[in-house]
Design a protein around this nucleic acid. Structure first.
Lengths: 195, 195
DNA sequence: TACCCTTTATGACAGGCGTCATGGAAGGCG
DNA sequence: CGCCTTCCATGACGCCTGTCATAAAGGGTA
């Protein structure tokens, strides 16, 4: 998009994120990432002395940052913000992504978790951090719109859980309608935080 | 447990399911499966001429069957069945599984979806069939307890989505509390199918 | 006994993986 | 000029992957 393209290191992190969330961690080779990023091969071991684990970890951090920004963007463009509105905002972005890219890419956190969360990989901590960052962004956005703090945590967990599951079902069934279903079904609970 | 152990073929399918849902598809080698199942190595290519894809496909079918049976078991042991009761039933089983096995194993459908649902793998169809089988089992259980048919589909989608996402978060954060949170937050919506 | 079909055994193949070692360009700076 | 740090290039290493080829047991049946 922009005239000058980003430096190789950044391109590799971004590329790793995209490849991981579309085929998973194990199926994403470092050579693939380098080629996808149009980066010099020798640069990989220079910028990522920690190897593949470091690359995946940074890809997760990048993704979490991206997700957090998306969440925070809701407050600035919503007239009358509400929990269900925020949830619909998040789901809509995924709906567009899935249809535009034909269900090619899913959530990098889910992909990494499925493969690594069960063991004791070094990527485990970046993974937990990424999930926490995303969750915290949702909580902060909820609190900002008036949801009591002790209620926001639970709502955020439900929103992220349902969204992740719906993304998965949408990809498996090749049907973005799952996202709409979850949004409309969940709207009542999300907005009844007063009761 | 039982005196006579199951035939090698069945053991391999079962083992494949367990390994896939703990480390993912790509990280699960056929040699691993054979060793884990205590099966003769030469038997793999005899029973699964379709190779790894066939094995993973059958592992998914087995898992879906297992999940469907678990769902159906609720109706037989619940005094006053309700949607939220069914959901709590499903979540409780996962809670026990995750704590007993220390978050080692997740959902095989999620694991396979994360790696393969984006492309055009032969495993894609078994994957979709497995998800549909599980979803259908939930729908049937809901209808059996009096939920209108046109409402059951949406509820089942929400339940499965939220459960899958909560499983993921629980594994990432090593905290089964996420499951309890989702159960208690979702209870109101699930039981308000009359309105 | 001989035969045949099912099941198991074993070794090899080509290819990909992550990582490492080594060496060369590029450019600021004394 | 020389030096040194940053960045890139290239080839190789050992390991593991899924698959195949080939052959040998096992166990009924005629």
């Amino acid at each position: 998009m922009s005239g000058e393209e980003r430096p190789p290191r950044e391109r590799m992190v971004y590329s790793a994120a995209q490849l991981v969330r579309s085929r998973g961690v194990a199926a994403t080779g470092v050579r693939d990432v380098v080629a996808y990023a149009n980066a010099p091969r020798g640069s990989f071991q220079h910028y990522f002395p920690g190897g593949k684990d470091q690359l995946v970890g940074e890809a997760l951090a990048w993704s979490a940052d991206f997700a957090a920004r998306r969440v925070a963007s809701y407050g600035r463009q919503a007239g009358e913000p509400s929990p269900s509105g925020l949830f619909a905002h998040m789901a809509r972005q995924w709906r567009e992504e899935l249809t535009a890219r034909r269900y090619e890419r899913g959530c990098p956190i889910m992909a990494t978790a499925s493969e690594l969360a069960g063991g004791d990989s070094p990527v485990n901590e970046p993974l937990r951090t990424a999930a926490a960052r995303w969750e915290r962004a949702v909580v902060e956005e909820l609190v900002r719109m008036g949801v009591p703090a002790e209620r926001a945590g639970g709502l955020a967990t439900v929103m992220i859980s349902a969204l992740e599951g719906a993304i998965m079902l949408a990809r498996v069934c090749r049907d973005v309608g799952r996202l709409d279903t979850v949004v409309s079904e969940l709207a009542p609970v999300l907005d009844s935080y007063a009761g």
